[in-house]
Design a protein around this nucleic acid. Structure first.
Lengths: 205, 205, 205, 205
DNA sequence: AATGAATGAGGGTTCATTCAT
DNA sequence: GATGAATGAACCCTCATTCAT
């Protein structure tokens, strides 16, 4: 079989996925401390004990859920940046990809921001570092694209890392703003505003 | 008496302030759910029951603390924007002011971001809207400054609201980045990077 | 006031005592693991949380209860052995005292035996050592009385420690036997059987 | 075949024995409530469900294990008492036999004492009675030997039942003492101390 | 008015037992 | 018949809130 997994293994994976999905839904709806393991089990349609077969405790489940989503986002975003495209295409692609995962997952994505940002509830200490590293990695990749743009004289000669941070800030701000006030601009316009603002501000010549 | 308050009233106000300060310290240190009312009472050096005479429950105390801080930040930032200064001075002043309140209060400020952002723990629903309005107000004021700059042909002819959102995003991103990695740039350099990036990108012709 | 305790302190002490009593009752009725903290609280007529104000967890409560009782028994028994009496009177007094505390507390006393004996549930590790020391102390005191008896040529010239252990064994066996089968001998006869058996077997000359 | 059992039946018996052995090991190591059925199944190298085919629940397994061991001890001890030997040889044999099963199984044996003694965890109520009867039977047999000794004027003219109880108490006390403090006396010396103390104290003439 | 002891609902976690495969 | 994944009742403990003093 293509997957190389036994039926049992596939089943387990599906169950785990269902649990993570239920957990993520509830955590982003209500916040970690307002969600009981019982509620997660119920939402996922498993018995309480079954959840504990997969995750050794609530924190473990939370971390796994965040890690999963963060990894997924990270993959999507780094994919958008890599490939044989030119710099502007890469940046536009990145902005679109970020918008695309943001739109349907805003709540979760915001949790991800919170992790990449500074909220350091004790609980999350370990996770925080882990997701922080993903974020750093993303910034570095962005910076490397920026560097390429600078060397190609497509972008102005500014510090590439700063430009990466700036793009992050712009995208987050606009996406959040769009989320709070979707009718202000149509979604697509929002995206193009971001790229316009950033790119025009950064274009050389 | 200048204040128009009786001694008793002044005393109460001071007590309330002490409680809010203690609560804020603990909330930002450990997060809402890891702080007990008993701990807050102890830190503030009041009896538990006394805290409940001032705040009807834990959520109320949390909201009051956030409101207080948010109001303070809001005042500081709007003050920086108003006055008879020219546009560039206003924006530079805003950036400096934001950095200044950010530096020593990063944790609390981050909570404020979280509120202005999207995390909607049920608990905070009401508060969220309230602080969101402060934030909207701030954006509007920023936008109005931007509009002035555009009309004065100091800034490029872009949507002033977009420019305000952009500046918010840039400042948040750089301040967070500076917080995570203070040694990368000295603090002052961080601030000037923000204004350079934003202003140079936005300066008219 | 004679006690030197405030009313509050006396009250606390009484509450603690009530909790210990309830716990002891239930533990000896059903065994540690069949007693819930809730049940103890209910029996003692306190709220659950109140019990936790006095004892930091279930094990702590158990240990305190056993320690209390063990200390009480130990005091009673060592009291019986000390004083200006002659050796035979001391031993007879000891046997009577042991019987007297045994009769109404047999269940608890048996728990105490279990502790002084060998059951080493993990839980009890610390306690076990502690109570074991009381027991060792008791044996030593008994042995010292035996030694006196030997030197006074009242008892046969055997190892005093062995004689102490022997007396312990005899008393336990007869008291347990009497407990299981009270009608076999009247209680008093049981006691006198012990002393007769032991003393006659040990009397010099 | 000699056993009168089919291969299947013999196989089952062996499996049952393996389970009982594993259970006993774990129960005496950790105590009833600290041992999970899963752990027993694992130690015995059976699937969980298989254990339940042999024992309808945990308590049943515990009882079977104790019964098994108690029966084994009882057989060993009554064997030591019967036969055509003289009274002193029988008693010495009994003491040796008890010591021999005690030494390697102290923990289990102690559980057996606990059962023969008074701890009446609800759980064990039924079992308790059952093992108590074995113990009573043992005492009776001992008493009968004592009676023979008295009639033969080898032992002093005391109540044979009392003498039996006394011997039980002495052996338990010394074996426990030896267990707690093995270096005090070498093991063999302990045994001989018991018999000396008891027999010399009881010898007629 | 101030205090902090008392309350008890609620949540995380374990594990005996069942039953589909 | 054997297996072990799934189930959910029950337990320990915390802490927001109340209220007698």
């Amino acid at each position: 079989m293509g997957t190389g997994l036994t039926r049992r293994e596939r089943e387990k994976r599906r169950q785990r996925g269902d649990m993570l999905a239920a957990a993520l839904e509830l955590f982003s709806e209500k916040g970690y401390h307002h969600v009981s393991m019982k509620a997660i089990a119920k939402r996922a349609e498993f018995a309480l004990g079954t959840v504990y077969r997969f995750f050794s405790n609530k924190e473990d489940l939370y971390k796994a859920a965040m890690r999963e989503k963060a990894g997924e986002y990270h993959r999507t975003l780094t994919d958008a940046l890599s490939g044989e495209q030119d710099v502007l295409a890469a940046l536009n692609g990145y902005i679109s990809a970020k918008a695309k995962i943001f739109a349907p997952n805003a709540e979760v994505f915001y949790l991800y921001f919170a992790e990449t940002g500074g909220i350091s509830f004790n609980l999350r200490a370990g996770l925080h570092k882990e997701i922080g590293q993903l974020h750093d990695d993303l910034i570095e990749r962005l910076a490397s694209v920026m560097g390429k743009g600078v060397r190609a004289r497509i972008l102005r000669d500014l510090d590439p890392h700063d430009m990466a941070v700036a793009l992050e800030g712009l995208t987050n701000a606009f996406l959040l703003s769009w989320l709070k006030n979707p009718e202000r601009h149509p979604y697509d316009e929002s995206i193009s505003t971001i790229s316009k603002l950033f790119l025009e501000g950064s274009l050389a010549g």
